[in-house]
Design a protein around this nucleic acid. Sequence first.
DNA 1: CGAGTCCTTGACCCGCGTCAACGGCCGTGG
DNA 2: CCACGGCCGTTGACGCGGGTCAAGGACTCG
Lengths: 251, 251
Amino acid sequence: MELKPAPGSPVGVARVLPPSRPPTAWKGAGTCEQIAASLALVRDSVPLARRVLHVGCSVYEPGDPFQCLHLVHAGAFKLVNCAADGREHVVGLQFRGDWLGFDGMASGHHGGAAIAMDTSEVWAIRYEDLLRASARQPELARLLHQAMSREIVRDREALMSLCTLPADARVAGFLQWWAGSLAERGMRTDQITLRMTRAEIGSHLGMKLETVSRALSRLAREGVIQFCGHGRRDIRIPDPGALGDVATTLQ
Amino acid sequence: MELKPAPGSPVGVARVLPPSRPPTAWKGAGTCEQIAASLALVRDSVPLARRVLHVGCSVYEPGDPFQCLHLVHAGAFKLVNCAADGREHVVGLQFRGDWLGFDGMASGHHGGAAIAMDTSEVWAIRYEDLLRASARQPELARLLHQAMSREIVRDREALMSLCTLPADARVAGFLQWWAGSLAERGMRTDQITLRMTRAEIGSHLGMKLETVSRALSRLAREGVIQFCGHGRRDIRIPDPGALGDVATTLQ
DNA sequence: CGAGTCCTTGACCCGCGTCAACGGCCGTGG
DNA sequence: CCACGGCCGTTGACGCGGGTCAAGGACTCG
């Protein structure tokens, strides 16, 4: 009962593919309607508690026991992982329709923190309730699986970009991803406002704040992005295609 | 309904914690008995098809439609992610009790490949069957969630080590993790055999094969590991504690 | 106004990527 | 049997991307 023959190329050696660069669609939670439908399904199927959080407040922190999953209804969160020796890193960013707390299901305790980057609303859902509800409603179980799968896919894309792309491409890819995430949620995408400091962006992308600053300056100098507003956090993307090109430029 | 106050330190600035270095236990799928119990639960709850694969054969490949999850019963697999432009990377290693295929649940198509690194056996489980079974058995749903959660936690640990640790520490951490994974599954851990080339290890750790080779040589020179056997792939770990120290040494 | 935070830019340096040479092992074929 | 080529691993020399250190400007808050 064999399956597939050995793949054409051993891993570690780049495949010799034509650089046919597809539009690099940012596949996320789906369209705005799909996200709304998902939220509605959860709302109608399982008891939940609404919670509003202000900037800097955390939904959970490292070591907290895992009891609830949280579904983001509005706002934005950063997921911060903390190692035992004090290293900490932004390992993810979550928006409307994303879930918080998957990291606690395995061990029963959260390994990181989820911190609001904006005034936000989450729906707290007891895991036991969710289990019961998804036993009745296969669609709910499927929804949860897909959300977790998206997390895994996203984390692995982050791993790849960390390992294979230079600083400028990672920053460009980050801007592209951010804009795509906003677009999925029906928000304007021609002008975006980064709700993070350079240090946080760097933490997320695996580089230092100076490197982020330099990369942004280079992108602006080349016209791929434009700073608008006085805060250096409002960015216009005149040509998403050009940004996408930079995002996949090796070395 | 506020939750927590803002955390003590902004992200991106290392917390000033005493470097109390805990034993850095490698939390994985659990003990050997727990893994066996999980496998038994799945075997008794849901129809499955046994498949044996030889070295280099893939369970699925990029673009394949997602229909089955696969539970590793014996052997070892590498998860390889492929970007559209040809970049490819080892994003994970799976052993007995681990699952294959989570990356396909979100989009309905697999984004990477799972390739056997040894003669291996997997149990193929149709996702629809699994959904039905886990609706009847909450324990099964819980099991699946925990497995996915472990994946997420592991990916994020990989992200962190990539971003914060130098090459030698990453290699040491990898050896520690590999030995821990074997120990969890009841196998001897004093002498381990890496079933990967230096290039594959490097792909997994985000470095080049020469760097892997140099790091291993340094570790051997310092006595933290010993090469045994002629193939340079059999490694003894005289003192796991020393290895763990290297694995968390910054810079 | 001063203190604090955030951002930018320059100068320097080091870890790791790159290129290259070499040795060991293995399977193939003369 | 040995010759040969291919793959794997090791080691050295060198260069560059990005980390580090430092100075300074812009903005906010008290």
